[in-house]
Amino acid sequence: MSKRLTRHIVLIGMMGAGKTAIGSELARRLRVPFTDSDAEIEAAAAMSISEIFARDGEAFFRARESQVLARILAGAPGVISTGGGAWMQPHNRAMIAARGLSVWLNCPPELLWHRVRQRPTRPLLQTADPKGTLLRLLDERAPVYAQAGLEFLSQAGDSIEASATRLIAALAGADPTLIQELP
């Protein structure tokens, strides 16, 4: 039996929360497109996010991020993974609410740190104290992330497949009209 989404599923949360990994698996299972907004920005700019931050600054990046998000949201419903800071912009939250269900992938701080500590591709963590920066960002962002339509708690030891299974059940419980069975 085939499924159809009535709105986008938009994954939000901190870097390292699993938005791309879980989002890819979720889209595969639902047989809908998966779009990583950061990858779309990199493709459009023909440079990495780190390079965009270094050359043009965070404000420029956030403006491009909003433009790309608007373009993706204008398309057919699918699963979208956003950058960790995208949800912090009120206009992005409004765009997402109008076209989709926001899902906060809430991940314990130590698991986030374990996943991102060896990654030089995280421009906001290029500081003298990257772990402290990550924890500060999480403290600042968590109250705003909590405004999402659904909070999904990561469980230690969950595989991507197990997380996707739990998330599908949570989505069905949060909005029974989101995923429709087609004959």
Rank of each mutant, 00 (worst) to 15 (best):
R115L: 04
F152D: 01
R166H: 12
Q155P: 06
F53N: 02
A54W: 10
S154F: 00
M95K: 15
E40G: 00
I52M: 08
A59M: 12
E140G: 12
K131G: 04
V144F: 03
A146N: 12
A46E: 14
R115M: 05
A43G: 09
G85N: 10
A63T: 13
P123K: 06
R122G: 06
G85C: 10
V79Y: 09
S154P: 01
A76N: 13
I80P: 03
V103T: 05
A63M: 12
T133L: 05
A170N: 12
R119G: 02
E161P: 02
A164W: 07
T133P: 06
T177Q: 14
T121G: 10
L138P: 02
S66W: 02
P123F: 08
L111K: 00
L167R: 07
Q89K: 14
Q118I: 00
S163K: 06
G173N: 13
A169L: 12
A70R: 15
I160V: 05
S102D: 06
A142C: 08
G85S: 15
S102G: 11
F60K: 03
A148P: 13
S66M: 05
R117G: 03
Q126M: 13
A94V: 09
E140S: 11
L167F: 14
E161G: 04
S154I: 09
A44C: 06
A170V: 08
D175P: 14
A156Q: 14
L138Y: 03
S48C: 03
L112C: 11
T82I: 10
P130K: 10
M47H: 02
A164P: 11
L171V: 01
V79D: 04
T127V: 10
A162N: 03
Q155S: 08
R64D: 04
T121C: 07
G157W: 00
W113A: 06
A54Y: 07
A156D: 12
A74D: 15
R55H: 15
D129C: 12
F60R: 13
Q147E: 08
A44V: 02
P108T: 02
P120I: 01
A98P: 09
P77A: 06
E110F: 03
Y145T: 01
G78V: 05
L105I: 06
S159I: 05
D36N: 09
E51H: 07
R141W: 04
G132Y: 05
I72P: 02
L125M: 02
E140K: 14
E40C: 12
G83W: 01
F53K: 02
D56I: 09
I80M: 03
M95L: 15
E51N: 07
A86T: 12
V116G: 07
P130G: 09
K131I: 01
P130L: 09
I179G: 09
D158E: 13
A156M: 05
L178M: 09
P108R: 01
I49A: 07
A59Q: 13
A97P: 11
I80C: 05
V144S: 00
L137E: 03
A172F: 07
K131Y: 10
D158H: 11
I41N: 08
D175Q: 15
A97Y: 14
A128G: 07
L167G: 06
A44Y: 11
L135E: 13
P108A: 10
Q67F: 10
L105T: 04
A146F: 11
G149H: 06
S37G: 00
I80Q: 00
P176I: 00
P123A: 08
M88D: 05
G173E: 15
L125E: 00
R166G: 06
I52G: 07
R136I: 00
P120F: 05
A148C: 13
F53Q: 07
